[in-house]
């Protein structure tokens, strides 16, 4: 821990004095990933809609976004022009990495986008429905191997929740973590594992081509134009959404917070942003203010619960 504080103090002391940019957005991930794409889309739309004249995006990758979050909380304190992009994965990463800086140490502004999880099996699999999969899971949880993203991430949490809802001990799930959706997809296509769980977008083209069978999606309602039940309809009472949000620096006055919130609301309602959502295939899940804070608290508590159930957090 001592190293950590030393590090943040050191980094803080060396921070560049912010020059006259209207907003600086921290993307706590490498270029190319979901958070980076969200930050860069924000940048484009904010400039294009005239919400902000000059927006800079800075990548601070590492440890599920917790390094970027820690740096943001300490360096930008009280700066009304700094934003950070984050999401559901960060909630899990904060818990599994035992990060001393949490979402309580920043000022969450609004949830912007969301993506639902999809449960798939290879086209040649004997499992035809979500019911079949639950049946197999109940019979022998170890014999059902699930491929998905990194341990403790959204995919892993979804599998834990499915097991729990099906009445199976979540510590008994046989979850095979892959570094990313791509590698997991290859394992599913090659029938190396029983089933796969990841964001619907990862599987979309394979489902359309008929090489993967979509069993269920994790939203509260069906995805328009997709012929698959929700988990709830399939008898598994689980709703998981991999959402992304934007947060402001800690220590803002109420006026400052209101100003940032107004800018973000303007962005979320703009035609430019709606266009981005459509081309990127993101769901609009804009939620702000107290409603968002309440939802966030609920998500954090639920995530902590399931991570304890899986055995990742003590």
């Amino acid at each position: 821990m001592k190293h950590f504080f030393l590090a943040t103090i050191l980094a803080g002391a060396m921070a560049l004095p912010a020059f006259a940019a209207d907003y600086t957005i921290i993307a706590p991930a490498n270029p190319g990933g979901g958070w980076d794409q969200t930050a860069r889309s924000l940048q484009t739309v904010m400039q294009q809609e005239g919400i902000s004249g000059n927006v800079q995006v800075q990548n601070v990758p590492g440890a599920g976004g917790t390094i970027g979050l820690a740096q943001f909380a300490s360096q930008q304190k009280g700066n009304p022009n700094a934003l950070i992009v984050g999401g559901y994965v960060m909630v899990g990463a904060i818990l599994t990495n035992k990060s001393p800086v949490t979402l309580k140490d920043v000022t969450p502004i609004a949830r912007l986008t969301g993506e639902y999880e999809a449960v798939v099996v290879p086209a040649a699999s004997e499992i035809k429905t979500m019911g079949d999969l639950v049946e197999a899971l109940k019979k022998d949880p170890g014999a059902v191997s699930w491929a998905g993203g990194s341990a403790g991430g959204t995919d892993h949490i979804a599998v834990g929740l499915i097991a729990k809802a099906a009445g199976v001990d979540p510590t008994k799930i046989n979850y095979i973590a892959y570094s990313g959706g791509g590698e997991a997809l290859a394992a599913i296509l090659g029938s190396q594992v029983t089933a796969g769980v990841s964001g619907y977008g990862e599987f979309e083209s394979q489902i359309k081509a008929g090489t993967l069978r979509l069993l269920a999606v994790s939203g509260p309602e069906r995805i328009a134009g997709v012929d698959a039940p929700t988990l709830k309809e399939a008898g598994v009472d689980v709703v998981v959404e991999n959402w992304r949000m934007v947060a402001a620096a800690p220590g803002l006055t109420d006026e400052q917070k209101a100003a940032v919130s107004a800018d973000i609301e303007k962005l979320a309602k703009s035609a430019g942003w709606q266009e981005v959502l459509k081309t990127k295939g993101w769901q609009d899940s804009y939620l702000a203010g107290d409603a968002f804070n309440a939802q966030l608290e609920k998500d954090v508590a639920a995530t902590e619960g399931v991570l304890k159930d899986i055995g990742l957090v003590k």
Binding site: A7, T66, A70, A177, L312
Partner: peptide
């Protein structure tokens, strides 16, 4: 971080090593 279990190995609490 060990990719399969999410546990940190040999990082001694330094977040940059995770």
């Amino acid at each position: 971080i060990d990719q399969l279990t999410g546990q940190a190995r040999l990082s001694f609490g330094v977040p940059e090593l995770l």
